[in-house]
């Protein structure tokens, strides 16, 4: 029985396809970032269009996480600007915000809640009305069939990670920003995630990610090297 099935994307994800993004959707200009007073990098710039994958590379401490947090608007760059759908990322409107999804190191999975509750609350907070069927289905496809109702504190690290990644299956977001998404995932889950990413790209989505592990199996990425 393959828990990580890869059947057709559910209608909930249709947003990415219908509203296909024209031209460059995510742009970064002359970004310079610091951690505290320590300069990390400067002059980073790119523009990413529909269906493109950006892989951020660099050694430990080169600022990959900082860059990703800057791209989604959590951190403020020391210089430069990030634009998403033509809007400054630090003051964009509700719609642009909804079309971006960030999954960071800390995966925002609550110990006290079950994977299903975690998913429901996550959707609720983003103002995405979700049907129970779609949510159960997403958990099933993320390989959590059978543990939807177990509080997350009893799950393994990998299962928690999958709980977080299940959001990708039902979010209408076009831009995914994934910080080290492969951490704690087993081989099968990695293959499953790569498939999801490839599918998302095919439908005109955008993905920005970092990874220390091999990414064979993903479509040819654009590379941003921070070293």
């Amino acid at each position: 029985m393959d828990a990580l099935s890869s059947d057709q994307p559910k209608p909930a994800r249709a947003g990415a396809r219908d509203q296909g993004v024209a031209g460059a959707a995510l742009e970064a200009e002359q970004l310079a970032c610091r951690r505290g007073e320590l300069p990390l990098f400067e002059g980073a710039g790119f523009s990413l269009g529909a269906g493109e994958l950006l892989l951020v590379r660099g050694r430990n401490g080169s600022g990959k996480t900082t860059l990703l947090r800057t791209l989604c608007g959590l951190s403020e760059p020391a210089r430069g600007q990030v634009r998403w759908l033509g809007q400054d990322i630090r003051r964009m409107d509700e719609r642009a915000q909804q079309r971006m999804l960030y999954i960071g190191h800390r995966d925002a999975v609550k110990d006290e809640l079950t994977p299903l509750e975690n998913l429901q609350i996550h959707q609720g907070l983003r103002g995405e009305g979700g049907a129970l069927d779609a949510q159960l289905d997403a958990l099933e496809r993320a390989g959590l069939g059978g543990c939807e109702d177990i509080p997350a504190r009893y799950l393994s690290q990998g299962q928690r990670r999958r709980t977080a990644l299940a959001r990708l299956l039902i979010s209408p977001a076009t831009l995914w920003i994934l910080d080290e998404p492969l951490t704690a995932l087993d081989q099968r889950a990695v293959a499953w995630l790569f498939e999801r990413i490839a599918e998302h790209l095919q439908h005109g989505g955008l993905v920005v990610t970092t990874s220390h592990q091999s990414i064979d199996g993903l479509p040819e990425p654009r590379i941003l090297d921070l070293d």
Binding site: E29, Q30, P77, A78, R79, G80, Q81, D88
Partner: peptide, 9 residues
């Protein structure tokens, strides 16, 4: 001055 003058609108 460069530092304090972010690019943008």
């Amino acid at each position: 001055a460069l530092d304090q003058q972010p690019l943008g609108p």
